[in-house]
Nucleic acid binder design. Structure first.
Lengths: 212, 212
DNA sequence: CTAACGTTTGTCCAATTGGTCAAAAAATGC
DNA sequence: GCATTTTTTGACCAATTGGACAAACGTTAG
């Protein structure tokens, strides 16, 4: 026994990799089936390992889910965090909307994971919403308000503006099946995101140009 | 035995009432927990009857769900169906948006039921989306297009316009927890729907006024 | 080589859950 | 009142599922 107190075991490279692989599989399964719809067996199979082996790396299903959730929330809110006081308001907002839409295109699983959670009443991240998220949105809403006061963009409700941006952009990930179904095989292909980008730009940016 | 062929048994008043009661309970449970998250026992308890009794009126969980789904789809699409060729375009769209928002306020369970289904890939109503819904949207999109050609409203993509209206209005039902959390106790009360109505009116209607 | 430790798995278990069934209880027709 | 039909329920079942565990396996340091 060494002199030092029992140091918490360093996580080895192999442990890290396994945990990553599991989380990747869990994201797949949770986002496609929701928390209750997902089974540990499904995740295990998707990760290419046995169920007891998963439970060696995570305490349980709940553990995987919250780990995913907390980690992804950061990525998810990054674009909003970047909304910057000093930039040109219209440019900032345009860039925010584009980033959000790109996230729906590139990370639809993450979007659906959150959508699932919120739909079920956000039992596992309610505090985060009321705390961290709320203050972040308040902060950014105030920035937007200051832009309005300065006459840089049209006056409107910043909170609902943010909701509208969330709703319209995430719609293309969360309601993907519906979007594709309605657009049909022709218009529903890869081009739909460019069409959406053009539309949203017109809707939000043109509508927000100052002086009507 | 009578001369007539075995007539399909008339559904009695009591049967109708029980089925209604069950569907009401099922809507509660399905919308709050999703299909897989809902249990027959929960529905039975919510309906105030025993599980085997439920299964006397419905063949199974799936049966309740599809019955709900098909029935509610009509209600859900009613506002869009009413979008009328002959009315004033701006009035028509304003009225559509208002109705959709009111539905989110008055029928949040229905909204969440659909959201849940779509999120999971719409396994049970995919054909409906690709058939009935698609042709309805196409029809209305063409009406909107004709308005644009006539210079009555600004030019934009009608399909994505419809998506944006769906997304923004249903957001207030599907993401209710998040909306409330972000707005906080003060702004998140009953008034949030009026604020939303004002905002959406400005966003969509002002933005669509013809001639920029 | 071997002891110690980290990793993996087969097996098992208890709880949950969708659904069945036969028998009891109501309701209905005569 | 009585026979028939409809409605309700208690008991039961098989499948699924989250999780526990000890034994087996691999790896590494001495």
């Amino acid at each position: 026994m060494s002199i030092e107190a029992a140091a918490p075991r360093r996580t080895t490279r192999i442990q890290q990799e396994k945990r990553e692989k599991i989380l990747e599989a869990a994201l797949d399964v949770f986002s496609a089936n929701g928390f209750r719809g997902a089974t540990i067996d499904q995740i295990a199979e998707a990760a290419g390992m046995s169920k007891p082996n998963l439970l060696y790396y995570f305490r349980g299903k709940e553990d995987m889910h919250t780990t995913l959730m907390v980690r992804l929330l950061e990525t998810w809110l990054a674009p909003l965090r970047e909304l910057d006081d000093v930039g040109d308001p219209v440019t900032e907002l345009r860039s925010y909307i584009r980033k959000k839409l790109e996230m729906s295109r590139d990370f639809p699983r993450e979007s659906r994971l959150f959508a699932n959670e919120i739909l079920q009443g956000a039992p596992r991240i309610k505090e985060l919403l009321e705390g961290e998220l709320r203050s972040l949105v308040d902060e950014k809403a105030n920035i937007i308000k200051s832009w309005m006061r300065a006459g840089k963009i049209a006056r409107t409700d910043p909170w609902h503006l943010i909701f509208a941006i969330w709703a319209t952009t995430q719609h293309y990930a969360d309601f993907d099946v519906q979007v594709r179904s309605v657009l049909g095989p022709d218009r529903g292909g890869d081009g739909r995101f460019e069409d959406a980008a053009r539309f949203l730009e017109q809707l939000f940016i043109d509508g927000l140009k100052p002086g009507k």
